[in-house]
Every structure is written in C-alpha cells, then in structure tokens.
C-alpha cells in the first residue's frame, strides 16, 4: 500500500506539543515497578524486538555472519530464548546476512537512501533502495531529508518518502526522522505525520549517528502520533526507537510506554522494535540474574 489516500492534513498545522507536559508523562512510565514474571516476560519480549545492528565502514562479511549467528542464538546457555527481530546492515551486506539467516524468522533490514545524512539525489536514493531489495532485504530503513524538512519543504519530504515506498515493493519501510536534528517536539510530531501519510510502515527516531538519539519523550511524541493516525485511518504504524537504549531497565520502561499509549496490539516485533546493539547483552544478563539469582560477569555473554 502506498501513501494513505485519506484527506491529507495540513502539515504546517500539525498538533502542538507542550514539552514540559510530554517530558513529565514520559518520566511517569519510568515509575512503573516491573517485577517477577512481568519482568521476565518483558525482557524476553524486548529481546525479540531488537534489530541487531552493525553500520560501520569497516564491516566485513565475517562480522555480519557472526552477528547473524548471534541473532539466532542469543545465549544458548539459557534455553527457550527468542531470536531477535532483525539484523540491520548496509545494502552491500544484505546478501551475506540473508544467506546467514536462511531458515530463520530473523529479518534483514538495510539502511538506504544515502544513510545516515540523506544528502544525495532522489534517483540515487531510489536505486539504492531497489538494490537493497533485490539483494533480499525484508525491510528498508530510510532517512528523511532533514535539510528540506527544516526549510519547510514538507511536500518534498513527503514525495521522497512516497517514492522510496514505491521502490520498496513488498519490503516494509522504516522512516528515520533523525529527531536529534529536528530539535523540537513539534517538529518530531510534524515529521511523524508526514512519514505516516506518505506511506511509512515504521517511524524510527534516529540513525544512531547523531546525538541525542532515541529518548523517551521523543518516542512518546511519535507513539502519540501513531495513535492519532490509527484513530483517524484505522491503519497501524510500527515504531522503532534507535540509539541510546542500552540497558534492560530502559527497555522495560519503553515497553510500559508502548503498552500504556498504544495498547497490547503493539507489543510484538511486527509493531515495535528496538534499534540497539548493546541492549541484548544487558537484557541477557538480567534474565540470567532472574533465573539464577546472581549476576554473571560480562565475560559470560558473547560480544558480537
């Protein structure tokens, strides 16, 4: 499905966010005390929502294969653990990852569209997207043109997303807003609306290359945009905070926030992901602590 054909809102007039209020609300989720079986279930769910990521110039086939193995075997010492949701790589690594993950449910996501800056022509972005899809990517993580957005060229941003969506074919499209460059919550909300109406399957906070990356208030603003879009159109959009979430406790706070903003329908990796690479080991450590009662050293968990 391409751009939602419902009447488009005026993107200059998207809902306003009160930053004091939204930060207060986000902080409130961290007051939930997640214990016992709720904690174990939450941690396993978090594992299953991770997009294990390597996005470096020095990535090699070998590193990607190792990461893929980890994706399917997070910690074999703990029986019954889920796999992660996806592996996220550059387009040139898609084929390697696809082959390594053969037979599993783990998806391959490719960043495309001149990631992370997005500073290229539309044609190049489209052909890069097509290349990644041809290589076998199940999901495309695109970046929006922040410069155009900040200039107020909302139609440009909209059209670009719609064009990439078309190039994705059956691959699901994640639209990275790079909220750290948008600065205000009002901008985050506006960019979320543009992305959803232009055909995003996911909206995603950050590339992980810019600080600040995902924060709870920014994610909350996007979750509320998803909820309002669902109210209006009946269409569900998925969410992916990325970058900066490295602790199990933070992941649980995010899950509480999703649960209490969008409800249980969003509590699976079809509709919610964590873009994180260091999160998995902390979650594993906490799970082992819950299972055995003691913390184990980091040496017991494989680095990837």
């Amino acid at each position: 499905m391409s751009a939602v054909t419902a009447i488009l809102p005026n993107f200059r007039n998207t809902p306003q966010i009160d930053h004091v209020g939204v930060e207060e609300r986000a902080a409130r989720f961290t007051k939930r005390s997640i214990k016992a079986e709720t904690k174990v279930n939450g941690l396993k769910l978090a594992l299953n929502m991770i997009d294990l990521t390597t996005l470096e110039g020095k990535d090699t086939d070998g590193k990607v294969r190792q990461l893929c193995y980890k994706a399917m075997h997070l910690h074999d010492a703990y029986p019954g653990l889920p796999t992660v949701a996806a592996i996220c790589v550059y387009p040139s690594m898609v084929a390697v990852a696809k082959k390594a993950l053969n037979g599993s449910n783990v998806k391959v996501a490719a960043v495309a569209t001149a990631f992370p800056s997005g500073q290229s022509s539309r044609d190049i972005k489209i052909s890069e997207t097509k290349f990644a899809v041809q290589e076998g990517a199940d999901e495309i993580d695109m970046v929006i043109s922040r410069g155009k957005f900040l200039q107020g060229e909302y139609n440009y941003v909209f059209d670009e997303i719609a064009a990439i969506k078309e190039a994705c074919g059956n691959a699901r499209l994640k639209v990275i807003l790079e909220t750290g460059e948008l600065v205000t919550y009002d901008n985050v909300r506006r960019a979320s609306e543009i992305a959803m109406y232009a055909g995003a399957d996911f909206i995603k906070t950050s590339t992980g290359k810019i600080q600040p990356a995902a924060t709870m208030p920014v994610t909350l603003v996007m979750l509320e945009a998803i909820r309002d879009f669902y109210y209006r159109t009946g269409k569900k959009i998925a969410m992916k905070p990325a970058g900066g979430i490295s602790k199990a406790k933070a992941a649980l706070h995010y899950l509480v926030m999703v649960q209490e903003t969008l409800g249980i329908d969003w509590l699976n990796n079809q509709w919610f992901r964590f873009g994180a690479s260091s999160l998995a080991n902390d979650v594993l450590m906490q799970l082992e602590k819950e299972r055995t009662g003691v913390y184990q050293s980091a040496n017991y968990f494989s680095i990837d």
């Binding site: 939930r32 005390s33 997640i34 214990k35 016992a36 079986e37 709720t38 904690k39 909820r227 669902y230 109210y231 649960q259 209490e260 969008l262 409800g263 249980i264 329908d265």
Partner: peptide, 13 residues
C-alpha cells in the same frame, strides 16, 4: 476505548 490495554503488572508492594 479504541485501544486494548493490559492493566496488570506483577505485584510490587
């Protein structure tokens, strides 16, 4: 409500 919520967490007294 349009959305489904789960309002139980393990007790944390």
């Amino acid at each position: 409500p349009a959305l489904q919520f789960k309002t139980t967490y393990a007790p944390a007294p």
